[in-house]
């Protein structure tokens, strides 16, 4: 779905979202009031400029519209791969965006994400994955790497990985797999504006992804392991 078509469905009451160089920023009307909208389009690779532009927008929202919910529309092929970005410290720029979003959350801004295109690795980590709730369209493409590339790097036979992918959601790309792992909260198949209004109506409840991964039997250990660690007082190490 194009981002224009998506926003038409998401915001029937209208929006003022600008698209500049595949970066989205602006606001939209919803039944729950005006929200801030930010994100990427056309599978944009997140480089230093993108991270800085998105962070700039988050800081502006916090300054000018305290408490306004922020919806992140995600379509990124990942981080930009270049020597120049590394030279400038791209990980510091992505971390800056991450910290700005956390600061917004701490100051009471609700953070929601909707993956409508691709959501890959570092690009996804730097904004979409920071939300209180991460949702996706059914045809969204969420991944770290495809199976042929994984086969090449891990030196495991592709046929074996394909077979195992039907048994475990950890290997192959796909929104259903991320749903099962708890990395995606739910899939929005239709009635997008209603889904958005419902999500805006819920309260943030901390990072629920490990519990969801366990309930959906996608990540059976993460929740238990982190709980075992937090249960270790100074005397029980």
């Amino acid at each position: 779905m194009t981002v224009e078509a998506l926003m038409k469905q998401l915001f029937p009451a209208g929006h003022a979202v600008q698209i500049q160089g595949d970066i989205l920023t602006g606001s939209a009307m919803t039944p729950k009031g005006t929200i801030a909208v930010m994100g990427t389009a056309n599978h944009l690779a997140v480089g230093v400029e993108t991270a800085l532009a998105l962070a700039d927008f988050v800081l502006k929202v916090v300054r000018e519209w305290p408490g306004r919910p922020i919806l992140m529309l995600v379509d990124t092929q990942g981080q930009r791969l270049s020597k120049r970005d590394e030279l400038l410290g791209i990980n510091g720029y992505l971390a800056h965006l991450v910290k700005c979003l956390e600061m917004a959350r701490l100051r009471g801004h609700r953070l929601l994400s909707l993956v409508y295109g691709e959501a890959v690795s570092g690009g996804f980590l730097s904004f979409g994955l920071m939300a209180d709730e991460i949702h996706a369209l059914p045809d969204a493409k969420v991944r770290v790497m495809n199976l042929p590339a994984m086969a090449r790097i891990t030196k495991l036979p592709l046929a074996m990985l394909e077979e195992l992918s039907s048994a475990s959601p950890s290997f192959a790309p796909g929104v259903e797999n991320f749903l099962q792992l708890g990395g995606v909260c739910s899939i929005w198949s239709d009635m997008l504006s209603e889904q958005l209004a419902n999500a805006l109506g819920r309260q943030a409840a901390g990072d629920q992804r490990r519990q969801q991964g366990l309930q959906r039997l996608g990540r059976k250990l993460a929740h238990q392991v982190s709980q075992s660690v937090t249960a270790c007082g100074p005397g029980d190490g």
Partner: peptide
């Protein structure tokens, strides 16, 4: 990369 999807969510 051997458990890429779980690893990405874990880093987040």
């Amino acid at each position: 990369l051997h458990e890429a999807n779980a690893g990405l969510i874990a880093i987040s």
